[in-house]
């Protein structure tokens, strides 16, 4: 693997690390298997691409993309809480509808290329900018989860009955967590779009598996009870995932090609699940 490929894996790892944080928030923290992410990732990319094409500031595009993702999360939350849909159905339905919405946002063009358009990565070294962005997001999410509000979110995923006993309004908190999670995922989609220089309506397929793989690899590498460590583990897991994929695709003796990517990812998820936890054994897992 060349230096360039390694750097590109690190950068993709950091971008998808933010997706992994969002997925960790729903799947792990509040125990809500949210499948909206395949749609909200593209939504973020689409919104960012359109805004950049119109000449808006790249940072502004990121913020609006996150906002759009938050609205998608709100949709899933409302479907689940007020329309009493099961969590899986609410997410799938939202992602399904987002496909059309994304095409609408992209004005019917399934692929927008950002040639000669200013992005946040044309300003300076992409790797360092991504490190800074990932660090800020990591610190913000870890901080939120260390507050009283964050503790209430975590209690929902662990023991709903006790959470209600302690006066936590489960429906409201679930919706807030979904908004936050999908805002992160859309933000990550917007970063991906700026980094790769295009937005494609089908680029979100499998976001959930990539994110989950990252979360699971992270949990195996850094089994910890501290929120700051476990959030960092999501980003680390995402980077390790990218490096493993790049290594697998570039080792000639394996003879793997780009179209084998999903097979590799799936195989990796299975391998991670079978792997015993490094270091401390997880308590009562």
């Amino acid at each position: 693997m060349s230096y360039f490929e390694l750097l590109s894996s690190l950068e993709l790892g950091l971008i998808y690390g933010i997706t992994a944080l969002g997925i960790c928030l729903t799947f792990r923290i509040i125990d809500f298997p949210d499948l909206t992410c395949d749609g909200s990732f593209v939504l973020g990319a689409a919104v960012a691409a359109v805004l950049l094409k119109l000449g808006y500031n790249p940072i502004f595009a990121l913020c609006i993309a996150a906002l759009a993702g938050g609205i998608a999360g709100l949709g899933t939350g409302v479907l689940h809480v007020y329309f009493k849909m099961t969590n899986l159905l609410a997410g799938i339905l939202m992602a399904f509808m987002l496909y059309s919405i994304n095409l609408k946002v992209m004005q019917g063009i399934p692929n927008i290329a950002l040639l000669n358009t200013e992005t946040m990565f044309t300003w300076g070294n992409p790797f360092f900018s991504l490190c800074a962005v990932a660090a800020i997001v990591w610190a913000a999410i870890s901080f939120i989860l260390s507050t009283d509000f964050g503790l209430a979110l975590r209690s929902i995923g662990q023991n709903k009955r006790l959470a209600v006993n302690c006066g936590v309004q489960i429906s409201f908190m679930t919706i807030l967590a979904l908004i936050l999670s999908n805002a992160l995922i859309a933000f990550s989609g917007a970063l991906f779009c700026q980094h790769q220089g295009f937005a494609d309506v089908s680029q979100g397929v499998g976001t959930i598996i990539i994110g989950l793989a990252a979360v699971m690899i992270g949990e195996k590498l850094l089994p910890s009870r501290s929120i700051w460590y476990s959030m960092f583990a999501c980003i680390l897991g995402s980077i390790v995932y990218r490096i493993l994929v790049a290594a697998a695709l570039h080792s000639e003796w394996l003879g793997l090609q780009t179209q084998d990517l999903n097979l590799i990812t799936g195989g990796m998820v299975v391998a991670v699940m079978l792997m015993p936890t490094l270091g401390v054994r997880k308590q009562n897992a």
Binding site: F143, S146, D148, L151, R154, Q158, L162, C166
Partner: peptide, 24 residues
């Protein structure tokens, strides 16, 4: 069970109060 004693107590300490963005 997956939270520490302190986190459990902090969680209960805020029972019936508004849970804001202050470190617990």
């Amino acid at each position: 069970e997956h939270m520490t004693i302190e986190e459990n107590l902090s969680m209960a300490y805020m029972r019936g109060k508004a849970r804001g963005l202050c470190l617990h």
